[in-house]
Design a protein around this nucleic acid. Structure first.
Lengths: 225, 225
DNA sequence: AAATGAACCTTACACTGTAAGTTGTCAAGC
DNA sequence: GCTTGACAACTTACAGTGTAAGGTTCATTT
């Protein structure tokens, strides 16, 4: 005799959106590596295989998650000054990383080939073009700035400040003795310093881009930091 | 009756170094996600659990791998001009990524807290100090340049040029129609363009650092690209 | 009322890292 | 030469993973 309480099976209870919501939740509570279809199912109150009716594989689910994050990005108002537009677009991406810290590693590792991601890339490249750069320089500057942005998102959400991932860690006294520069710099590596550090690097790149566009005008960075 | 051929069990046949070598091999041939203790054991001609005698867990093994890569880095000759020293140190790290492309994702994701990694970080921070920056600016510039470097290593080894990771990919005709900027820029995203793009961004950052140090001198980037 | 098909569940398989226990082999001491 | 002990490698087993295959239930359409 089956004494177990039968879960009421309701058709159409699940939806892609619900599953995505729950997936973000599980990822942020369990961590990216702690995420699994079974845990996701548990969070949804269903069986793992039920999810496969809505997403044919975890890869498809992940793509949907990335698409939702990237799809939420809007291009900055074209009426604003170029530097401000560029800054806003960059900070917007950085923000979706901060909003989903556990997912950030996946986000920056993901190769953006879906239509939604390509649309965003296309818009950003257009923004570079608006800066007055030709195709080649737009592409290279996009890449260079993108490197900086991706590295920052990675570090800010999964980096040094999140604690050690090493197995053989080093205590504070050894740190002070053997690695004094790391010890001293550590004060500026914490989460409270992310914004200021990011702004410094971003301003450096923005300054250089404006300089490149204006044909290497006089230095403009004096006394800024 | 056991008709299987008995593998000769030899004491001391395995060593940490052998295992690390094989691990790099398996990772580069099978990919980072295709790596497993069982495949590593198969490559070594032993059983999975034998590896645990030398490394208590995969985490320990990974730490050893990162340590070996980072530990192979030497600080550039202190007699060279500062800009050249910085460039060499950065390119050296970039090179270990290129030498182990499948491992690059792990490398940039790894939080460097082992003594060997801390020693390297300490040396790099010292290099920034040698540039004439105080503790705070050294720390922030180290981070900013590090962001750029990590993002580059990530893209160059696991990024767009490595093909789609998306499930819903976009064909060339749709790319040309709907995402013309991506299409046009794609020509500069290939592996053959990595060096030139990386140099552009690196020069931008180095220029800005020298400008910061020299108190915003005259522009020097004119006509460089 | 019967048929259809979507939505969900059950079971099963090959894979993972690794804890626990066993066996084979070599070196040292007698 | 024999015994002993330690160590290195192996065997087994378990809980976890993604997901293929097939079964069940139920709202909708006819």
């Amino acid at each position: 005799m089956d004494t177990s309480i039968k879960k009421k099976r309701v058709r159409g209870r699940l939806s892609r959106e619900m599953i995505e919501d729950a997936a973000f939740n599980v990822i942020e509570t369990e961590g990216l590596s702690g995420f699994s279809m079974r845990k996701l199912a548990a969070a949804l109150g269903c069986e793992a295989m039920s999810i496969y009716h809505h997403f044919p594989s975890v890869a498809h689910l992940h793509e949907a998650l990335v698409d939702r994050l990237v799809g939420s990005l809007e291009m900055p108002d074209a009426g604003l000054p170029w530097r401000q537009r560029m800054r806003i677009a960059i900070e917007d991406f950085r923000r979706i990383g901060r909003d989903h810290p556990a997912y950030a590693t996946f986000l920056v590792t993901y190769r953006m080939n879906s239509p939604i991601c390509l649309a965003w890339l296309n818009g950003i490249l257009s923004l570079f073009r608006d800066g007055g750069f030709d195709t080649e320089l737009s592409a290279r500057l996009f890449r260079a700035v993108g490197y900086y942005l991706m590295g920052a998102v990675l570090d800010e959400n999964a980096g040094y400040a999140k604690g050690p991932s090493a197995v053989n860690t080093v205590g504070d006294e050894q740190l002070a003795r053997d690695f004094p520069n790391v010890m001293a710099a550590g004060r500026f590596f914490g989460a409270a310093e992310f914004d200021k550090t990011f702004e410094l690097g971003l301003d450096m790149l923005l300054d250089e881009m404006e300089r490149l566009r204006d044909g290497a005008g006089a230095g403009q960075l004096s006394g800024k930091v």
